[in-house]
């Protein structure tokens, strides 16, 4: 097992390296001179040169990459062009709202997705199955920003039960979490259904039934436990979907999180913030995939550790 963990950890290193190069080059791919961009429209040639020195853009490219990386390790992500505050601080205050939003979205999505998936698999080709699967394909197809606006229209504007946006109390989490999680719930429902249908054909399920176990125990106890293995992988992959989705949802609900910061930064061409956010999202995604791989190895004894 330890060997497997080490192997997976080492496997991540080249991807991290390539991702860091990609993000480092990001600011160099922007058409035009980044120094001029930072210095502003009215800057003199001398100003631009000063900025270039300050940002280290006059150094050879490999030196620039090295200082970029060592900066990251020291928590130095540059200065926001918009607010003139350290990018690290800008990101730090927005991290938790996005974290909790994705967390609660994931929690309800997994519970509801699994319920729908398992019920659909046991009622195969009955109305429950058709309803569940049509609901699931709708959940995948619905534009999240539209769903968010419909929910705001109904629960905030007309009924006045919940806030239209922002983050004030626990009530603020309800509508954004429902919107953000719906796509994931749909994917998990579809996936757990097909996974359960494979499992329910197996011999030990027949044995369980033959020895007189209650159907509920067969399905939820024996079946689901084994069907969970591929579902866990799928759930982990959906975290990436949530990170991406949060960008849209946070704009709809005026959420003080990382997603809205990204959109605001793109509009303002605040490149240090964009760069740092891309790095953070990629790191999170890679880390989650790594954790999922490890859990998978833990859950599935058949996996080869060497």
């Amino acid at each position: 097992m330890l060997k497997y963990i080490i192997k997976r950890l080492i496997g991540v290193i080249p991807i991290l390296f390539l991702v860091s190069i990609f993000i480092f080059l990001f600011v160099h791919l922007i058409p035009g001179d980044p120094a001029r961009l930072v210095a502003g429209q009215d800057a003199t040639i001398q100003d631009v040169e000063n900025v270039r020195k300050e940002l280290g853009l006059d150094q050879p490219i490999h030196i620039q990459y090295f200082s970029f990386i060592s900066g990251i390790f020291q928590g130095d992500l540059g200065i926001s062009l918009k607010t003139s505050r350290p990018v690290f601080d800008e990101i730090a205050i927005r991290f938790m709202p996005t974290f909790w939003l994705t967390f609660w979205s994931m929690v309800w999505a997994v519970i509801v997705g699994l319920l729908i998936g398992v019920i659909s698999s046991t009622k195969r080709n009955k109305w429950q199955d058709y309803l569940g699967m049509f609901g699931a394909v709708s959940g995948i197809s619905i534009p999240s920003f539209w769903m968010g606006l419909l929910l705001i229209q109904l629960f905030a504007v007309q009924l006045g039960w919940l806030p239209t946006g922002g983050l004030d109390s626990w009530k603020s989490y309800i509508l954004p979490s429902i919107t953000l999680g719906s796509g994931v719930a749909a994917v998990i429902a579809r996936f757990s259904r097909s996974s359960m249908m494979d499992i329910l054909k197996d011999d030990y399920i027949r044995t369980g039934r033959a020895k007189g176990l209650k159907e509920n125990k067969v399905v939820w106890g024996h079946g689901l436990k084994n069907a969970m293995i591929p579902v866990v992988t799928m759930t982990g992959l959906q975290f990436g979907f949530l990170l991406g989705g949060s960008v849209v949802i946070e704009t709809v609900f005026n959420w003080p999180g990382l997603g809205r910061l990204l959109i605001d930064s793109v509009a303002f061409r605040d490149y240090p913030v964009i760069q740092a956010e891309m790095l953070l999202f990629a790191l999170q995604f890679i880390l989650i995939n790594l954790i999922v791989d490890l859990i998978y190895g833990f859950l599935n004894p058949q996996i080869r550790y060497d």
Binding site: P14, I15, L18, V19, F22, F26, L29, I30, P31, G240, F241, L243, G244, G245, V247, V248, L262, I263, S265, V266, R269, Y271, I274, M278, F281, A282, F285, I286
Partner: peptide
């Protein structure tokens, strides 16, 4: 495959947003 891994490291729409940040909306 490593290039694909790097592209996969950015969840869907985020990669698109990054590319648009470079190219302009």
């Amino acid at each position: 495959m490593r290039i694909c891994d790097v592209l996969f490291a950015f969840p869907g729409i985020l990669l698109a947003i990054g590319i648009i940040a470079i190219l302009g909306p």
